[in-house]
Write a protein that binds this DNA or RNA. Structure first.
Lengths: 197, 197
DNA sequence: TCATTATGTATGCAGATACTTACTTAACAG
DNA sequence: CTGTTAAGTAAGTATCTGCATACATAATGA
């Protein structure tokens, strides 16, 4: 009939702003009024794009995951024989880890883990994240898609932990850029090598 | 004059309850009304013990740190020559890591890191925590109080990260007890050994 | 005993906060 | 042109929240 909906595009356009708000303020302090103001719209418009505030938050979680996946696969697509994908990602992260502050959304979510929907979104996100890292580790070890060793899985979790503590250290001013970089590079390499059976 | 104050004792008595509330609910959702109800007192009584809600939260942060320090030093006091302190702590954590859910207070705090007081409390807590782990790692490496190597510092951060990701994995149901235990034991041992120069 | 101070109860309040309602305006298909 | 529906504006509401106040009671030292 009349006037096609542009809801999907609008969602896509506002999502980065919404995600930044949640990253800046955490879940509770990010009020719907604040979100609307940052987006330059009225609150009810946000409620036409998402059913409630929780859905906006979950969309933000998915957004930051998709974004870092995008960045990482771009990094992997640069064909280079000298280093494995894992090594290239490690080097990239050593330089750019967490520079957008998006991980703060994860911390915010981890304070709301008794909500089953938020918990589910976070769990799925971590699962996919870990799966990706684990595949890179396994490839580095030379396992070609065969049943991946549980050592690779363990190393992948440890690497995720490394990234997390690097973020915490940055956030709290306990690790400067140089230290953080060395931490990720050295400990990362160590985990990568030492876990190779 | 008249009637001595028991404020310090009351604070001490209520602190575990306050800490649990923050761990269960995060910072914002833990209302002063909720705190009062859990403590079985009226709100204004809490405000006689601490100047404001933020102070209650910071007290909770310190409390969980003191508590785990207490547990750890008890673990270290069991004299045993076969294993280093680091190894004993690792083994203990592999079995009991995060079982009180207190680390959720940290996640809550990390969502409020733009508040300078909370950030300061968290940073101090992490600093002392890391310092402790680092000393254990250095001792394991045989460095007897001399200038501790930066490798020990790095390994200590990685170990803290390991604990963090183990907590996240537990919280989100991504790591069961068995996996979490193996992760801490194996990756922990690996970090301990491989970082020894 | 009495002045002083801790402890406890009840209630108040100004400003959020998530979400809604009522209504106007503008785009597009037929 | 026109009927339909999306996009936008403005204001409202019920409830919550951190914190304050007013007042009664009880313990204690002098």
């Amino acid at each position: 009939m009349a006037r096609p909906s542009h809801i999907a595009e609008k969602r896509k356009a506002l999502l980065p702003i919404v995600a930044r708000a949640f990253a800046d303020l955490g879940y509770r302090r990010t009020t719907t009024a604040e979100l609307a103001a940052r987006c330059g719209v009225q609150e009810n418009i946000l409620y036409r794009l998402w059913p409630d505030k929780k859905a906006m938050f979950i969309a933000a979680i998915d957004y930051v995951f998709d974004l870092s996946m995008q960045v990482w696969s771009r990094q992997l697509s640069h064909v280079e024989e000298a280093r494995s994908g894992a090594e290239r990602l490690l080097q990239y992260e050593a330089r750019h880890h967490g520079e957008h502050g998006h991980y703060r959304i994860v911390f915010a979510g981890l304070s709301e883990t008794d909500d089953p929907e938020i918990r589910g979104a976070l769990a799925g996100m971590y699962r996919r994240f870990h799966q990706f890292v684990r595949a890179q580790v396994a490839a580095h070890h030379g396992d070609r898609n065969s049943r991946q060793s549980s050592r690779a899985a363990m190393a992948a979790w440890a690497l995720v932990g490394l990234g997390t503590v690097a973020n915490i250290g940055r956030e709290l001013g306990l690790l400067n850029d140089r230290h953080r970089r060395r931490l990720i590079e050295d400990a990362g390499q160590l985990l990568l090598e030492a876990s190779a059976q």
